[in-house]
Amino acid sequence: MSARKSPQEWTLLFNPNWHQLHVGKCQICGEFCVDTPTPEEAREWCLKHARDTGDDHFELTAFDYCRAVFTDRPSGTNQGKEPRNVS
Rank of each mutant, 00 (worst) to 15 (best):
F58R: 10
H57I: 07
C33H: 02
D64G: 03
K81P: 06
S6A: 11
D72K: 13
E44M: 04
Q79H: 09
S87T: 12
D64M: 09
R67Y: 06
C26G: 01
H19E: 09
F14N: 00
C29P: 00
M1R: 15
R67N: 03
L60R: 02
I28Q: 10
N78F: 14
C66H: 06
C66K: 03
S6K: 05
S75R: 09
F14I: 07
K48G: 01
G30W: 05
I28G: 00
N78W: 13
K48H: 01
A50Y: 06
Q79F: 15
E41H: 03
K25Q: 15
G24V: 05
V69G: 02
H57M: 12
F14H: 02
H49C: 06
Q79G: 13
E59C: 10
A62M: 12
E44G: 02
T11W: 04
N17D: 08
N15V: 03
S75A: 07
D52C: 03
L60V: 04
V69W: 00
T71F: 05
E9I: 05
R43N: 14
G80H: 07
Y65C: 11
A42K: 03
L60S: 01
C29F: 00
A3F: 15
D72M: 13
S6L: 03
R73E: 09
D35F: 07
E40M: 07
R4Y: 15
G76T: 02
D35S: 15
W45P: 04
L12Q: 10
T77Y: 14
A62N: 08
S2K: 15
A42E: 02
W45K: 00
D56H: 09
P37Y: 04
Q8G: 01
C33G: 08
F32T: 01
C26E: 06
V69P: 02
W18F: 13
S87W: 11
F58C: 09
Q79K: 14
F70H: 11
L21I: 15
L13Y: 01
P7W: 12
L47M: 14
S6H: 03
R43T: 12
D55K: 05
F32V: 03
A3M: 15
G76N: 07
F63T: 06
R4W: 12
G54D: 10
F58I: 10
C26F: 05
C46F: 08
A42L: 05
V86P: 00
V86S: 04
D55T: 08
C33W: 00
